[in-house]
Structures are given as structure tokens and as C-alpha cells.
Design a protein around this nucleic acid. Structure first.
Lengths: 164, 164
DNA sequence: CATATAATGTTTGTGTGCAACCTAAAGAAG
DNA sequence: CTTCTTTAGGTTGCACACAAACATTATATG
């Protein structure tokens, strides 16, 4: 029965991505790009690191997405003058207008997901879902610690063979 | 509020994939590969097309995964003698044994997701989730039809310019 | 039989997702 | 000032998602 959760979550995430991709097709923007653009819009100007805080993705992935967005003229990347490591990312006029149009379509899509679901049902749904997600996080932690222990043991074994 | 669904679904799917990836790390198998192996185990021997029925993925992706699985000696691919287009895919001894071990770990992971959730709560959760997924599918259909109408119109426009 | 069409897989190209490594700049310690 | 460490971001390599084009083999149809 528990494995049913994984099926539903995976399937639903797949469909969500598919829906967004279809919706974004005619705007010629990918879902990942749109998510980044939204964050930029809400907080611009901001650095790459700040974008990451809002997105649960990876800096390597983000770097690629930003490159493509800049190439297409959707964003501007400038270095900070006092600290030349950090970026200042902001939208261009083109993308600001584009985002307005997309956001309308997006709410249309997300709203359609709940039209036959009562408020009370939804509330319980969220409640259980959040507990499940916490369980996921806990289990991930548990496994990562397990791995760390094992690799530390291996490291110690190596130290014995090749000491300082 | 509806957009909260998308957040939770995306986040949970991400965590699920992360959990499975961590769990599979020491078996040196990716999550996609494991999913394919599981389907093969349950129905072997079977064709690539039949694998796709059980997986909601793409034939191009599957082709790559199967190549890698074959390279590592986890599966065997033979052509059907009477219809040389179709494959007969089956596990090797190595992977059969491996799968047994992995499946134990997997149930351990999935079971941990529900340990603090009552049966009734879970039942309601599934019920709502399934309705949401249906709504997702409906909306995807709606958008795909919209796109088809638009591309058909464009096609007609082209026909007027370049008739037979 | 010959040609058109359909079915099964593979290949190719673009965009992620993610780990591992690299660079340049900033800060800290001596 | 010099060296060590940390930080922001970029690059590389591998696997996958997915669209589109392709090859091969079957099948339908004239």
C-alpha cells in the first residue's frame, strides 16, 4: 500500500511537468526556465545563489539555464562592482511582458486541478501530504548518514594502508 | 491555494527520486534502470513495447537504458525469429539476485513514509490524489486539443499559399 | 509481385539533474 | 604581504526526458 504513494507522486509530478510543458510550448520557454524567470521577477535584482534558495535545484543546472535565458535575451547578468564574484540577474522588457501572459495561463491550469474537490478534503490532503514529505526527508537523512558512516570506515581503512 | 498542490507534488517527487537514488547508490544502479529491471522481472521475457506499457516513459529513453543495462550484463536482448522487429528482453542471473536485495531495501523505504499516518487518513489521501491526477490528465488533453486545432489552422493557411 | 503504410526499435539533438572538479575573487591567519 | 580557506559561479561528464528523424521489417492493397 505504501508503494502506492510513490506511484501517485511520481505519476502526478510527471503529469504536472507535462502540463506545464504543453502550456509553455507556444511561449517557447521550458518549465525550468519559466520557474527561474518567476523567481527573478519576484526578487530582482538578485544573485544566482539567491535564486537557488527559492528553487531546490542545483547551481550547475541553474548556470546552464541562465546562459540560455541570457542568449535569448530574457535576462541580463551583471557582475557586482564591489564583489566581482556575485551576479546581479534581472529580467528584460521582453520577458517581463511574456511572464505576465504566462502567469495567467498557469493559474488557469493549477485552478483546474481542484475544481471538484472540497475545501475540507483539500485541507486534509495537504496535512497528510506534508507529513509524508517530512517522512521522506527523514528517510533521506537516515540513508545519507548511513552512507557517510560507511565511507568514513572505508577512509579509515585507507589511512591504515597509507598513513601520513 | 491550488498552486500549493503543484509545489507539494514536485517537491515530493524530487525527494522520492533522491531517496531512491541514495538507496540505489551502493548497488550501482540508477532509479530508471531499477524501474525497468523490475518490470522485466515481473513479465520476462517481454518486448520493449510491452515494457513501455508498464512505465509511462519514452521509447527513446528506454532504448538507452536497455543498452546500458545490457552493457553491464544485467539483461539479455534477443530478436524474435519470426518478427525480427521485436525484442525478447530478460534478466541475467546477476541481476535477478541483485533485484532481490534491492527490493528489500525499497520496501523498507516506502514503508517508512506512512508509519505515522492512519489508515483512514491514507485512504482519503489516495482518493483526493486520484481525483487530482484525473484533473491533470483532463487539462493536458484540453491543452493538447487546443494546440492541435491551432496547428491545423496553420496547416490550412499554408495549403492556401502552397496548394497541390 | 510492387508499392504504400504501419509497427518496432535506434539514433540524434536539446534541455535538464546532479556529482565532481575548476577558477577567480574575497577573507582570514600568520 | 603571503599563504590558506572559503565563497560564487562556471565547466565537464554521465544519465535521462522527449521530440524528430531514421532504419528495418511486416502488412495491407492495388
Amino acid at each position: 500500500m505504501s508503494s502506492r504513494i510513490c506511484e501517485l507522486v511520481s505519476k502526478s509530478a510527471l503529469y504536472h511537468k507535462r502540463l506545464m510543458t504543453r502550456m509553455l510550448e507556444r511561449f517557447d520557454v521550458t518549465y525550468a526556465q519559466y520557474q527561474v524567470l518567476k523567481v527573478i521577477k519576484q526578487h530582482q535584482p538578485l544573485s544566482a545563489k539567491e535564486i537557488l534558495v527559492h528553487l531546490d535545484t542545483d547551481k550547475a543546472t541553474l548556470s546552464g539555464v541562465l546562459s540560455r535565458l541570457e542568449q535569448r535575451g530574457y535576462i541580463q547578468r551583471d557582475r557586482d562592482r564591489s564583489d566581482k564574484r556575485v551576479l546581479h540577474v534581472r529580467l528584460t522588457r521582453t520577458s517581463s511582458a511574456l511572464l505576465e501572459a504566462i502567469e495567467v495561463k498557469e493559474t488557469e491550469c493549477t485552478d483546474s486541478l481542484t475544481h471538484n474537490i472540497k475545501n475540507r478534503e483539500l485541507k486534509n490532503f495537504f496535512n497528510v501530504f506534508e507529513r509524508i514529505i517530512n517522512n521522506q526527508l527523514r528517510k533521506i537523512d537516515e540513508i545519507e548518514q548511513e552512507q557517510r558512516r560507511q565511507s568514513k570506515e572505508k577512509e579509515n581503512d585507507n589511512d591504515e594502508e597509507t598513513p601520513l
